[in-house]
């Protein structure tokens, strides 16, 4: 299996600015331009969420494109499949809007398009080299890396902390 890149979240450095949500909506608009996208009907939708955990933590949450995706297994109309790029996609022609995928999703990241009566989610911006949310993040709290690279970076950082006595 190819080593797909995933969108990872560095949970300690998100400032909750919501720039990723704007960038996501613009990338999923017709015009792909912020100033014009605002005036489109229907309004383009952001596919990721920034949650707040008291007291002071912000966590961007988005589709993990799970390897063993509960939504793929649960979809009664067979609308949800895995793409060649490794992403989990919903075929809107087949989607009947039963929201079973929403019931089984452990992350709560599947949205309901009220105009189309269909489910929607992160598609990792197939037209872009780096997904719009990752490219827009001012603090680099969102990263686009393979699991191996992300883990290797984390190991390096932990090792450095151990050596310099800062603890983990």
């Amino acid at each position: 299996m190819p080593d797909y890149k995933e969108i990872f979240v560095k949970t300690d450095i998100c400032t909750g600015c919501n720039t990723c949500k704007l960038a996501c909506a613009v990338e999923h608009s017709k015009t792909k331009n912020l100033f014009e996208a605002m005036f489109e009907t229907p309004k383009p939708k952001s596919r990721l969420y920034v949650e707040w955990v008291p007291e002071n933590t912000r966590i961007p949450v988005l589709c993990r494109h799970c390897e063993d995706a509960p939504c793929i297994n649960a979809c009664i109309s067979g609308a949800i499949t895995r793409s060649d790029q490794g992403t989990v996609v919903t075929d809107t022609d087949k989607c009947i809007g039963c929201w079973t995928c929403v019931m089984v999703c452990p992350y709560g990241v599947i949205g309901r398009d009220k105009a189309l009566h269909k489910a929607y989610r992160c598609d990792r911006c197939p037209d872009l080299e780096v997904p719009a949310c990752v490219a827009s993040c001012p603090t680099k709290a969102l990263v686009y890396e393979s699991v191996d690279t992300f883990s290797a970076d984390r190991r390096k950082a932990v090792s450095k902390e151990l050596v310099t006595g800062k603890g983990v």
Binding site: C17, N18, T19, K21, L22, A23, A25, V26, L34, F35, A37, M38, K43, P44, K45, S46, P138
Partner: peptide, 23 residues
């Protein structure tokens, strides 16, 4: 920042900053 670009960020009080997401 798109909120700043569109004028949808307000820092006029200490309850904020507030942003309105146009989408």
């Amino acid at each position: 920042c798109g909120f700043g670009e569109t004028g949808l960020c307000c820092r006029h009080c200490l309850q904020g900053p507030c942003r309105i997401n146009p989408f």
